[in-house]
């Protein structure tokens, strides 16, 4: 009898790809993350059959949570059918047998890169955000051991200094996406590179947000109904992207996050970034029976938590005055 005969034949993969040991570790880390909002929990981070930096962190979290009864929505830049989102969705369904949807209301798990849906997520839904760089302090302290000490001390002076410098030089905050936020009055957190438009959605949200960086091996969470505030000086308010003049070329919708599409003649046209939402609007306009959920921003651009976003400063008003 040889070893080959004794060995088991080549097997297929475990349910949802990860072995039970890996899933258990991830779930424990996720629970820890939920228990300490905004705290980066280190985890081993398994290699997956997609390249590192392509959503392996989000994917591990999704795979450790998904079951056959789940309905999964995967988006990249707001689009369900971008090649990367399609690829991740194909892998998740192949490995878990879960249903997929493009409708944010129907999904139990939404894995996303760089966007939150326009429709307000509800209790029981889980948003999994893919994170390239989990460390908001990386810009001021690239050494991870030192950055951990700064977090432990809640020593965020340098983060504020970066904002101060921006105001001195440009008269405004110029951090684009991944705007740093204070979570639960304790940890400064990188909300993943979502646009500023989406940042307020994390505040006192009904849904659970899990953020996971596979390459950097850190995951963190914003539990439901947790305070999340962008870092802003008391006299210079944080502002979301100003797209109030833009209307979607397909639906005519305004005051939602838009893609700007440059045209040959130097002008631009605009289109909703959230393709699942756009699809529903189009179907609705065609007279089909679709349920469109309430959105974070109403048609006038008002955010659903009154007073959370301070009024936009006029363009000429300089904080230095």
């Amino acid at each position: 009898m040889s070893l080959i005969e004794l060995a088991q034949p080549n097997q297929g993969y475990s349910y949802a790809f990860l072995d039970a040991f890996a899933k258990r570790e991830l779930r424990r880390r996720i629970l820890k993350g939920i228990a300490i909002p905004g705290y980066q929990v280190p985890y081993a981070s398994r290699e997956l059959p997609i390249a590192r930096g392509w959503g392996t962190g989000g994917l591990q979290v999704t795979l450790s949570l998904v079951g056959p009864d789940d309905t999964v929505k995967v988006i990249d830049q707001g689009a369900d059918d971008s090649v990367n989102a399609a690829n991740l969705r194909r892998f998740i369904t192949r490995m878990s047998g879960a249903e997929t949807t493009t409708d944010a209301n129907q999904a139990t798990i939404i894995q996303s890169r760089h966007r939150i849906t326009e429709e307000i997520l509800r209790e029981g839904q889980t948003l999994v955000l893919q994170v390239p760089n989990p460390e908001p302090l990386r810009r001021v302290e690239p050494d991870m051991a030192k950055a951990r000490i700064l977090h432990a001390d809640a020593d965020y002076g340098q983060m504020w200094l970066v904002l101060y410098e921006q105001l001195v030089r440009f008269g405004r905050y110029i951090q684009g996406a991944s705007y740093p936020v204070m979570v639960h009055e304790r940890f400064v957190m990188a909300p993943s590179p979502i646009p500023r438009w989406d940042t307020p959605d994390l505040h006192q949200s009904a849904h659970l947000t899990l953020l996971s960086a596979g390459r950097e091996k850190r995951l963190y969470a914003v539990p439901p109904y947790t305070n999340v505030y962008p870092l802003e000086f008391t006299d210079v308010p944080f502002e979301v992207e100003d797209q109030s003049e833009w209307a979607c070329r397909t639906t005519g919708e305004r005051n939602k996050f838009m893609n700007e599409l440059p045209q040959d003649d130097g002008s631009s046209v605009f289109e909703l970034s959230d393709t699942g939402y756009m699809e529903k609007l189009v179907n609705h306009q065609r007279g089909e029976d679709v349920t469109i959920g309430t959105t974070y921003y109403d048609s006038e651009g008002q955010f659903y938590h009154d007073g959370y976003l301070k009024p936009r400063r006029s363009r000429q008003e300089s904080p230095d005055a």
């Binding site: 392509w54 905050y173 110029i174 684009g176 996406a177 893609n259 700007e260 970034s273």
Partner: peptide
């Protein structure tokens, strides 16, 4: 190589 147009647009708003 992945699309980054949302983040790019967010930066362009500032620029």
């Amino acid at each position: 190589k992945l699309p980054h147009y949302v983040t790019f647009s967010s930066g362009m708003d500032n620029m």
